[in-house]
Design a protein around this nucleic acid. Structure first.
Lengths: 342, 342
DNA sequence: TTGTACGCGTTATCAT
DNA sequence: ATGATAACGCGTACAA
């Protein structure tokens, strides 16, 4: 095994060497019943000896399936998403599927390009969490129509019927707000992501509903919107609100990063958490138990959502043709994780 | 576009409809100079109209290249790694490559299986960060010999000649330790990963060298080893050391998670950081600026390492055959990021 | 400028 | 129990 630099071994090579036909080799390698014991053994032995490895590209072309799932997310390096992908990878691998990833960086344009790219690779399903910018879903309609199922996770579309795995964002927004109200806070700020995205619309609606139910007036100045909800943006949003004549006494942030940024900011100017101002985030990222005081948050089962998305994807892939058109939706419940910040 | 459910459009379909040959379509789609303007235009127009998308599986088989890079890491949901992968994805995408990911969960066995799986998918290079358990590299030798380059990042092998992108772990371990010494600490504990892994050996060696250079005796009880270096393990390791007659007055942890765990633990039993005990971590994870006091750490350019790994991979992929056998190594410098904990 | 024919590596169908 | 053949969709050398 040396002079032939990197010529890959094929079933033809094995067939030639054993004086059998390629089909025999092919069948023997997958324990086809019709091949004799000794032949099978001989083929396998030589395959191992020669370091034969099947060419999945050829196999995929022939079989018209790639056993690959595509994943398209805004960012790979965020706690919630990397954990979700970890769950996707785990379940996919168990089922014998590969995982092809791409990130949109929250750009609609990149989302369109990558959706096409994943389709071109003939992934058998695409698991998507929408870019912040996205409000048009034509690129997904295209691939769905061509037979590639799309499963939306977390950031799901609005006014578009498709498979979805998500949390109950309305209820989550409501419960977070109610939790603050229960603790006696009245002037509750909301740090929201772009209302272009349904999940932020729903969280926003839940927030409003909780206020209304408790007879608390809504103040638009206490509703901050941000496209990235980063630590910095969280700090900026709260900084503005603190300039108000009547600043908030509590904050519900629709993700933990912005909550952390806001919380660090108010602490940096001498305010006490939760005495002067309380916080609750959303996602229950690991950072919640590291910051002082620990950040209350809403649970958000990332890994489980990833696993569920794969399970549903596999179900759709193997779904009989007649049920094409029907969609499923998994909506997970969340709960308040109460810590020192609220 | 309706009754034919999900039959995909091929160049044959376009050729038939236009009464030209498939090769003409193929050439027109990639702007081959020999095809007339009007033909090219007509082909492209119909392709768009019919929603034609190239089948990359077929193309890959024909071209004997997949434009795909495989990534194999211990865990996807860790700040350093997810950021590294983000860098990989970014550079790969720019170069027109796809990214196939798999995680080993620090298991040697899974590493072997996934290496083969990625090879079977005919990825054109594999970017690997070793599993904690791995000390044998036969599975990588196999794929390398069959012509698939392997680029090791961060957790690189020992006694194995291969392409590498890493930090100078010896210097990093030395500098972190020296930083503590410069601040007046003398009883410096080390929280190390498994010494099976070269990176931890090197960090350990750097730690020892710094102690020696400063005339500080080495105490084995102050050297803790852990296979996962999680928050919990960091806490456990420091808890044991605090039981010693002469406990440490400073801690160098070879990752930030264990540093955070240890720091939170000592604070929970009433010790002050950095007055009673100082800390420096390694990776410079985002958490460093969130914990109180902020955690000093050693920089570790994750995204840049990912981009570099891809750049080197592409270079190797396109490398002339005669230079097969030569390997490159990129060793990045790190620096102390001094914060409140030390 | 365009068409013909073959092969990439595998596997399913039909023969033997 | 095994072999011959065709086909998956594309790209290209060769021919026209």
């Amino acid at each position: 095994m040396d002079q032939k630099k990197n010529k890959r071994v094929t079933i033809y090579d094995l067939a030639t060497e054993l004086n059998v036909s390629p089909s025999t080799v092919s069948r023997a390698l997958k324990d086809h019943f019709s091949i004799g014991q000794k032949t099978t053994a001989a083929v396998k032995a030589l395959a191992k000896k020669r370091g034969y490895r099947p060419n999945l590209i050829a196999s995929n072309l022939r079989n018209q399936q790639t056993n690959t799932i595509g994943v398209l997310v805004p960012w790979l390096n965020r706690p919630f998403i990397s954990t979700l992908i970890s769950g996707v990878e785990e379940s996919a691998q168990e089922a014998g599927y590969n995982v092809l990833i791409a990130q949109t960086r929250d750009s609609y344009e990149k989302e369109v390009i990558n959706t096409k790219a994943l389709f071109d690779c003939r992934v058998q399903a695409i698991i998507v969490s929408l870019a912040m910018e996205t409000t048009d879903y034509g690129h997904f309609e295209d691939v769905i129509q061509q037979g590639t199922p799309v499963i939306f996770v977390d950031r799901v579309p609005s006014n578009f019927c498709g498979h979805q795995v998500m949390i109950d964002n309305y209820q989550t927004g409501h419960d977070a707000t109610q939790h603050l109200i229960n603790s006696g806070y009245q002037r509750i700020a909301l740090l929201s992501g772009s209302l272009k995205q349904k999940i932020y619309q729903d969280r926003h609606a839940g927030y409003l509903a909780a206020l209304k139910k408790n007879g608390i007036p809504v103040e638009e100045q206490l509703i901050g919107k941000s496209d990235r909800l980063t630590i910095e943006e969280g700090a900026n949003l709260i900084a503005e609100m603190l300039k108000l004549p009547a600043p908030p006494d509590a904050v519900f942030s629709t993700n933990d990063s912005a909550a952390v940024g806001a919380m660090k900011h108010v602490q940096s100017i001498g305010l006490k958490v939760p005495e002067d101002i309380a916080f609750i985030g959303l996602n229950d990222d690991p950072v919640c138990t590291i910051i002082t005081p620990n950040l209350s948050s809403m649970s958000h089962p990332a890994a489980e959502m990833g696993r569920l998305a794969v399970r549903q994807a596999l179900e759709v892939i193997t779904m009989p043709q007649e049920s094409v058109g029907s969609t499923f939706m998994v909506r997970l419940n969340t709960q308040v994780v109460s810590r020192g910040s609220a």
